[in-house]
Computed example of a mutant assay.
Amino acid sequence: MRINYDFADLEAFLAVKETGSFHLAAERLNLSQSAVTRRVQKLETALDSVLFERTTRAVKPTLAAKRLQSRAEAILDDARETASAMRDESVAYAYQRNAVVTVAVIPTVAKLIIPEAIRRFRSQGHGARFRFFDQSANAVAESVARAEADFGICSIPELEPNTRFESLFNDQIVLVLPKDHPLVAQRRLNWTDIANEDLIVPARGTGNRLLIDEAMARAGLPLLWAYEIRRSTTALDFVSEGMGLALLPRSALASYPDRGVVFKPIDNPTILRPVGMLSRIEQKQTASEGAFKDIIRTVCATL
């Protein structure tokens, strides 16, 4: 059945019904009286019903008008709610398209996780922008705790009081060495195998160094190093130049293209670095932030 009336016709009908006058209805709707009359007549024709008995002194609603009133009110209420919801969704969509998600991340895992997560985020239609802080683990924790970053990706042995850590994967500390080094041919390596090598280790005070020192102390083994270096990329450069062998997280190699180096796991003890997301407790997250976190979880599940 074809519908030959619209919302404006229903509004005119209700205005006349509620005011009892075409003149007052016209004033309420800011229309001419003739315009209100035409709309009511159009509705009567479409419904094949007389809605008002008109006299020179009064406008009296018919039984059909009384039956139509509740239906007309419901139709207009639904239309207003729909329009409001669509406006809200449009505003929310526009906000999400222009929202900025700030992520603090340790450099060793940035290339391993972030590019693939961004590709998946964009492929799902999300349009938020990103601000990345590539920082040490301690700096990531501070950025999250101070609300400078929405969340962080790091390995941190101690948490700030207002943060929580969600583990994503374990990143093993490995030995990085030149491809032509004799130890490459050895199937398994123990710490005693590298006792006489020039070791390149993370600088004291870093999260990686703390993990290594604690593991060595538990195993009762000395850590005899030749070079302390703060940045993993510099340590990899030193290995490439034949200056020594480096103890680094395996993820660090993801940001270092093949330049003649390989990695070998070391056993007894095996040192694992937990990498995860750091968030503030009771923090309210945006839809974009929540979606990006879910994608990061999915990416890390494949590592």
Rank of each mutant, 00 (worst) to 15 (best):
V109W: 00
V184G: 07
T302L: 15
I156M: 05
P202G: 11
T55N: 09
A252E: 05
D88S: 14
N162D: 13
M277T: 08
A58K: 12
N190C: 11
Q135S: 09
L248K: 07
A35S: 11
G244K: 02
D180I: 02
E158Y: 10
I113G: 00
E89R: 06
A235I: 01
L168G: 00
G20K: 02
A147T: 05
A83P: 09
A217C: 09
I156Y: 04
K264Y: 07
I106K: 03
Q41R: 10
D88T: 14
L272M: 12
L221K: 10
F52L: 12
I296G: 02
E116C: 04
L159E: 08
S49A: 12
S84T: 10
E148L: 13
Q285G: 06
V299W: 03
A291I: 01
R97V: 08
T37F: 14
P161K: 04
R28M: 08
V91N: 11
D48S: 14
R119L: 11
E289M: 03
R2Y: 08
P202N: 12
A117Q: 12
R38V: 13
A94L: 14
A215E: 12
V184K: 09
F22P: 00
A74H: 07
K42N: 13
H181L: 08
R67G: 06
S49N: 02
R71P: 00
A139T: 03
E89S: 11
L159G: 04
C154P: 01
R188Q: 13
F121P: 09
R67P: 02
D294K: 07
E44S: 03
A149V: 01
D258R: 02
R122S: 12
A252D: 04
T286Q: 10
E197V: 04
P61K: 00
D9Y: 03
A15E: 06
L47N: 06
A219C: 05
R28G: 01
R231D: 15
N208C: 12
E73S: 06
W191I: 03
E148Y: 06
A74V: 05
D134W: 09
N196Q: 15
F7W: 01
K42A: 13
D88M: 13
I271H: 05
T82W: 06
Y256L: 08
A141W: 00
R97E: 12
F292C: 11
E73P: 04
L10Q: 03
T37G: 11
E81D: 15
R131G: 07
I194Q: 04
R280W: 03
N162W: 00
P182G: 12
K42Y: 07
N190D: 14
S136K: 00
A235V: 02
D78G: 11
I295D: 05
R120M: 10
S255W: 09
F151N: 10
T56Y: 14
S167P: 10
R80D: 14
E160P: 06
E289I: 01
V59G: 03
D198T: 15
A147L: 06
F169M: 09
F13D: 02
